[in-house]
Simulated assay, not measured.
Amino acid sequence: MLTWRRRLLTPSHDETRLATRGFHVKDAAAKEVLETVGARFLDGFGEAVGTRTVAELEEYLETVPTRFRGFAAEGAAMGLAVLDALPMVRSGRVDTFLGGRGRDHVYMALVGVGWAMARLPRLLWPRPDRFDPLLRWLVLDGYGFHQAYFHTDDWVHGDRRRPVLDWARDDAAYEGRAIDQGIGRALWFVAGTDARRAADLVDAYPEHRRADLWGGIGLAATYAGGATTEELEHLVTRSGPYRADLAQGSAFAAEARLRAGLEVPHVGAATAVLAGTDPVTAARVCEDTRPVDGADGAERPGEPAYETWRRHIGQALTTGRLTAPTAPTGGAR
């Protein structure tokens, strides 16, 4: 292991502690979940920059507890993207990872690349055409999460302006929406998994941005967990006209976890309430509505196929065509 590189590049675990970030502490259990997520992310990053081969990294990821393995994969992808950007190290590690076992973690991996972009000079950013044309928007989702998580005063409590990155070029008009989806995920962390506080944070943003923020909250509340059934039901109530966006985010989380074989009890508790169904059905909706030709399939002017896909998922889950199972008693954190 290249210990010197790991020590030089890996942030301290203190950087992801709620007290350091100034995030809300709902209770001890929620605090432990969120801080463990942060720690496992940084562990994955450290392994990525400290191992010699992607194969060694893949072996490490298999040892991470199921609940937190996706976050370790996300951190690992960030680390690989940072190494790929270094002039003396460039070697296509992200491509190797996504072509191997990392394929199952593609959602989290692309988000991790977005974290790396937030830390790298623009000249070192990866080109968008390196990634799946449908899923590349998850890179900007990761960028938005990073900025809201580490620059909370400006991105969450301040003027809340979205940057114009012009990274996606042909579809640059959608960039802000993808970034907002990542900000929405971060709001779940900023709120300490407190559903009421998270909803209040969304309400502080302009109305035209709330759909994407609710989608992010649905994803984080399902993938990371930390809420009881009662709290999840509060999210449904508060989402109001954005109910379908909340459901879509929850379904995305189920798809990401099941694809990687990482289902845990709190995922089913969340999809039962937020998506109105079980994780397997929610994931199947994502697959059934996925555009056949990848980036093709957009239905509205200026709307990439990714957004058409997201909209179809939300509609399928909230139009009464699915039978919702009984939510697990008490939920699961």
Rank of each mutant, 00 (worst) to 15 (best):
T66W: 08
W115E: 04
A173E: 15
A148L: 04
V156G: 04
F131W: 06
E32N: 14
G142D: 03
G314N: 06
R160Y: 06
E207M: 03
R197V: 09
T289K: 02
R17Q: 15
D180F: 00
A199T: 09
L274N: 02
R40P: 04
G226Y: 01
G50Y: 11
A221F: 00
D153W: 11
W167F: 08
P128S: 13
V190S: 02
E32C: 07
D296E: 15
G46L: 02
T319K: 10
R259A: 14
A247Q: 07
H146P: 12
G226R: 02
D171T: 13
A211Q: 06
I179D: 02
Q181K: 06
R310I: 02
Q248W: 00
R7S: 10
G216P: 04
L138Q: 05
T3I: 09
R284H: 15
D132R: 03
R243E: 10
R196L: 14
R161C: 04
A324H: 08
R67M: 07
G268Y: 00
A28R: 12
R7M: 05
H266P: 01
V292L: 13
Q248C: 12
G158A: 03
R196T: 14
H24T: 11
A204M: 05
F23C: 09
R333K: 07
A283C: 13
R122L: 11
H151P: 10
L213P: 03
S12N: 13
R333Q: 00
V89L: 12
R321I: 12
V202D: 02
H234N: 10
D170N: 12
A29R: 14
R90M: 05
H312N: 14
